[in-house]
Amino acid sequence: MNAQIHQLKARFLRQEYIVTLFTIMVVFVFSVLPGSNFYSLPNFRIILSQAAINGICVIGLTLCLIMGGIDFSMGAVLAVCACFSGILVNRGVPVFAVLAASVLTGMLCGAANGFLIAYLRIAPIIATLASMYVLRGLCAIATGGVWISDFPETFKWPGQSTYGGIPMHFVLWLVLAFAVQFTLNNFNIGRKFYAAGGNPESARLFGIDYAAYRLSAYAASGALIGLSGTIYASMVGTVSADTTGLNTSGDLLAAALIGGVHINGGKGNVFGAGIGVLLMRIIRNGLIISKISEHWADAVTGAIIVLALVLSSLEKFSQREQGG
């Protein structure tokens, strides 16, 4: 009997489920607050649309985290790619080419990070903090601080089109999330990611080239950021080196942590992180819509993260009880 309870606990105390439960509760709370427009289709559409950008980026962050690394430079890379997209679009480059160029740029930035971390063996915190400052500085210099906007009509579709009311980039996010997680779960390459995790020793024993995997995680993450950078530029209409992506890294890291992605690597999935992104967006949106001062947004988010962390440690304890 005890063993069964432990098994159940281990199965359902999983952070992803807890977080999903949380999210549903929060949605409920906001919906029943008097005088709020929260529970409405247009509002949900806004939430999904805004969450999609961070969502796509968080897929990349999850990959990096699974490989035991972290990334603080995501906001800066977002700024670089968004600005680059904006400049290209304004020069008349066709949108598809812009998308490709942006993805490529993002991948290069990510690969640079990956190189620093995997081959020069600089600790990820440090490497990405450093590259954050460097990238943002370079972006500011390259764009001259100008706000890039005034995009042509043809650029509207990446960020603003909808299929029957559902924002296209949200669909894109879902597709990417499924694709990535499916690969991680069912393909050899994916399993190797989990196996290598944050542990270079075990990776070697498995015959996995740890450095190469780490670098590819960062490069892939960069590519994803490049994609969302273009979507961002299209959605918001104005980008600049110093106002784009300022809070991104913090938000993404929080979302991933909430969603149960372990910072040491080897555990966590893209959906958990995605729910984390959604939850944070819902909190912020809900607070504004319910006319509560939105200054509470960060505090509430932080509190939820801490709570999620506490719960995740309970998960660890229950595992230990099981002897696993």
């Binding site: 918001v236 104005t238 300022l246 809070n247 912020r284």
Partner: peptide, 11 residues
Amino acid sequence: DMQKSYENATT
């Protein structure tokens, strides 16, 4: 933060 302005306006 530009994105925040955008989100604020939307909400």
